[in-house]
């Protein structure tokens, strides 16, 4: 996240005139300008920081017990004391949402990691080796792309069984094809650039070239995709939890909280609305950051 706040990475000015280094004063001024110019991005970063802290130390924002039911306080609408209202058993929704972050985020991270590692390796191999290896791997990827990701994830869940981990793995595998495609395209692009041939022409060995030229230059768009995928994975994981394939109750998880609230939709809208809003805000923020990164990392090319 610190890269985001690096002022050099966020202002699109042409190269500064030949003076070396930026003094801390101008750096701070630029940071200030950045905060004023792009409030949406700043809010997005704050939301993500909040979500990350909630996942690791939920007690910071919600010291209570997420499973503590107080029958007297059943189905209270949002208000002082209960920012997100209470549920049908009298549990505080805010506490449940904050404590549910951990499970949702773990599943999301697992999914992204699976997609990034497996898809990235397939794409890198296909793009760098080429020939029949490329041909075979990409045909497999084409087939995976022919099946909508959610259906592929459902098939995997049917095979692997229920639970948060299985949901995460299923969502990750369902996105492998996307990553493989982008990684392959980037590898091919960088491998075809003149500077990689120039490296070969000065006698650099191919594996040195792979590590020093191809990977660093191909990584940008793949990492942008990973951030974007993070948002998509939150949606996919919460959808599957909503359908009932995730963590069994009473463990709080964003998607299953919405599913629980569904039965009280007519009378107590907040039981559905609040966890859903949390998901929406997180995904929006992640997408906003991914867009900003795309702009920054895209400029190098």
């Amino acid at each position: 996240m610190t890269d985001l706040l690096d002022p050099r990475a966020t202002t699109a000015q042409p190269a500064p005139p030949p003076t070396s280094g930026t003094s801390p004063g101008t750096g701070r001024a630029r940071l200030g300008r950045f905060l004023r110019r792009r409030p949406g991005l700043v809010v997005s970063v704050l939301v993500i920081v909040f979500v990350l802290v909630s996942a690791v130390f939920p007690a910071v924002f919600a010291p209570g017990d997420p499973n503590l039911a107080i029958p007297r306080q059943r189905s209270l609408p949002p208000g002082p004391g209960h920012w997100f209202g209470t549920d049908y058993l009298g549990r505080d929704m805010w506490t449940r949402v904050v404590h549910g972050t951990s499970l949702s985020l773990q599943a999301t991270l697992t999914a992204v990691a699976v997609a990034l590692v497996v898809g990235g390796l397939i794409g890198l191999l296909a793009g760098f080796v080429g020939g029949w290896v490329d041909e075979v791997l990409m045909r497999v990827v084409d087939v995976l792309l022919a099946i909508p990701p959610i259906l592929l994830a459902l098939a995997l869940i049917a095979a692997l069984g229920f639970g948060t981990t299985n949901v995460a793995i299923a969502v990750g595998i369902a996105s492998v094809a996307q990553f493989a495609r982008v990684m392959r395209a980037e590898t091919l692009r960088v491998r075809g650039t003149v500077y990689v041939e120039a490296a070969r022409a000065v006698g650099t060995r191919w594996w040195v070239s792979l590590g020093r030229h191809v990977l660093p230059n191909a990584a940008g768009p793949v990492l942008v995709l990973a951030v974007l995928e993070f948002g998509l994975a939150i949606l996919a994981v919460s959808s599957l939890s909503f359908l009932g394939y995730g963590a069994p109750p009473p463990a709080p998880e964003w998607g299953s909280l919405v599913a629980e609230g569904r039965n009280y939709l007519a009378t107590s809208w907040w039981m559905c609305a609040m966890p859903g809003l949390t998901i929406a805000a997180t995904v929006l923020s992640v997408n906003r950051v991914s867009k900003a990164l795309d702009g920054e990392w895209g400029r190098d090319r």
Partner: peptide, 17 residues
């Protein structure tokens, strides 16, 4: 490579950014 070297047409593309 130690005996014969190459300078490319496009100096914008031949250097790793």
């Amino acid at each position: 490579r130690r005996r014969a070297q190459l300078v490319y047409q496009n100096p914008y593309a031949s250097l790793d950014p």
